[in-house]
Amino acid sequence: MEKTWNNKAWFLVLPVLLLVAFSAVIPLMTVVNYSVQDTFGNNEFFWAGTDWFDDILHSARFWEALQRNLLFSFIILILEIPLGIFIALNMPKKGIGVPVCLVLMALPLLIPWNVVGTIWQVFGRVDIGLLGYTLAALGVDYNYVRDPVDAWITVIIMDVWHWTSLVVLLCYAGLVSIPDAYYQAAKIDGASRWSVFRYIQLPKMKRVLLIAVLLRFMDSFMIYTEPFVVTGGGPGNSTTFLSIDLVKTAVGQFDLGPAAAMSIIYFLIILLLSWIFYTVMTSSDADA
């Protein structure tokens, strides 16, 4: 097909380009500039070369935070994706139950991240929180402030509570778009419930599932607010993810050079993973 050339369209794109320049490109350039220098404030900078990158790459603290991030994202995906599919499959497809379920599912998504953190911080407290107090009354030794495993369980359950709804809604949208003719054909063939899921529902949900996996992976990999509010990265450093470590370095210690170097490495990892997911998604679309 002949391509239509209309250079006036560039003027319409210009506001967005300017906005992106000010909100993303210029800050990114500044971070790159900071990453090769040292500063003690007062707008004075000293050349450091690749020293900060070297420090970060040889820092056990950085690799431990990265491992925690990867583990957290992995756990989130293996919990939220199957659970989201399961709930979507069992949601009503017609009747009054549909709007009720949709509203219930959407509720956690409407709550701001810091409020979610505060809710779970109070909820899990052994002295006044419903969850913590109940578990203590049942004789379960649960204390997310003291025990790293309890802190991880709390942060993971909080994320599952907050974000499984997104997976549910995406899967549900994929499921309701399947024409009835598919189910009728399956019924005529005497297909089992598993076969219907495996050969009709799952392939039809593939595209939305990839979006769900991408969104949940990226969001869980960049998680900051909820664990910061609930555990502050503790106990010790057990729930210190890369984003929390980054803020501690930049704002807590005012080490802007190392923080900038860490930001760039973090950014590159996210860029690489985003590209892999994007490629998988677009390749699977091309195959479909």
């Binding site: 350039m29 500044t30 790159v32 500039n33 900071y34 090769v36 500063t39 707008n43 900078f45």
Partner: peptide, 14 residues
């Protein structure tokens, strides 16, 4: 643009 802390190597990179 001094707040952007430009250096010659980073300017050349960009």
């Amino acid at each position: 643009f001094s707040w952007m802390a430009w250096t010659l190597p980073t300017a050349m990179f960009f």
